[in-house]
Simulated scan of single mutants.
Amino acid sequence: MNTIIKNRITSIDFLRGAIMIIMALDHVRDYLYAGSFFYDPLDLTKTSGILFFTRWITHFCAPIFMLLAGTSAYLIGQKKTKSELSVFLVKRGLWLIFLEMIVVNFGWNFNITFPMFFFITIWALGVSMIVLAALIHLPKKLILGICILIVAGHNLLDNIHVAGNSLSAFGWSVLHDQQFFTWHKEILLVGYPIIPLVAIMPLGYCLGSWYTADYNIQKRQRNLLLLGCFSIAAFIVLRYTNLYGDPVKWSVQKNVFFTFLSFIKVNKYPPSLLYVLLTLGGAFLFLSFTEKLKGAVVKVVSVYGRVPMFYYLIHIYVIHLMAIIASTLTSGQDWKRWILTKPIWFTTDLKGYGFSLPVAYLIWIGLVIALYPLCKRYDAYKQANKGKWWLSYL
Results as ranks from 00 to 15, higher is better:
Phe170Glu: 08
Leu142Ala: 12
Val131Pro: 04
Ser128His: 02
Trp95Leu: 11
Gly126Asp: 00
Ile97Glu: 00
Ala169Gln: 08
Leu189Pro: 02
Cys147Tyr: 00
Phe98Tyr: 03
His154Ala: 01
Leu156Arg: 10
His184Cys: 08
Gly171Trp: 08
Val131His: 07
Asn155Tyr: 04
Gln178Ser: 14
Phe119His: 11
Leu125Asn: 02
Leu132Ser: 06
Leu175Cys: 09
Leu189Phe: 14
Phe110Leu: 04
Phe180Asn: 13
Phe110Arg: 01
Leu189Lys: 09
Leu175Lys: 09
Leu132Ile: 10
Ile160Glu: 05
Lys185His: 14
Leu125Asp: 01
Gly107Ser: 06
Ser166Gly: 15
Asp158Asn: 15
Tyr192Val: 13
Asn159Lys: 15
Phe110Cys: 02
Gln178Trp: 12
Gly153Asp: 10
Val131Ile: 15
Ile187Met: 13
Phe119Leu: 11
Leu132Glu: 05
Leu135Asn: 10
Glu100Pro: 03
Ser173Leu: 07
Phe117Thr: 02
Ser166Glu: 07
Ile122Pro: 02
Met101Phe: 12
Asp158Trp: 12
Ile122Tyr: 08
His184Phe: 13
Glu100Trp: 01
Ile148Ser: 08
Thr182Arg: 13
His137Pro: 09
Ala124Pro: 04
Gly107Cys: 04
Met101Gln: 10
Lys141Asn: 11
His176Asp: 11
Lys140Ile: 15
Met101Val: 12
Gly164His: 11
Leu157Phe: 14
Leu175Asp: 06
Ile150Arg: 03
Gly164Leu: 09
Phe181Glu: 07
Met116Thr: 04
Phe181Asn: 04
Asp177Ser: 14
Leu132Cys: 11
Ile130Ala: 06
Asn159Trp: 07
Tyr192Pro: 06
Val104Asn: 02
Val151Phe: 05
Val127Gly: 00
Phe170Gly: 06
Tyr192Gly: 05
Ile187Pro: 00
Ile146Val: 11
Met101Glu: 07
Asp158Gln: 14
Ile143Val: 15
Ile160Leu: 13
Phe170Asn: 09
Ile130Lys: 03
Asp177Cys: 09
Leu125Glu: 00
Lys141His: 12
Ile120Cys: 11
His184Val: 10
Pro193Arg: 01
Phe181Leu: 08
Leu125Arg: 00
Gln179Ala: 14
Leu156Ala: 15
Val104Glu: 01
Ala124Met: 07
Val127His: 01
Ile143Thr: 11
Ile194Gly: 02
Phe170Pro: 03
Ser166Arg: 12
Phe180Trp: 15
Ile150Trp: 04
Leu167Asn: 13
Leu167Arg: 12
Ala134Asp: 07
Ile160Ala: 09
Ala163Trp: 08
Phe114Thr: 05
Leu175His: 08
Gly153Ala: 09
Val174His: 06
Val174Ser: 04
Leu132Tyr: 07
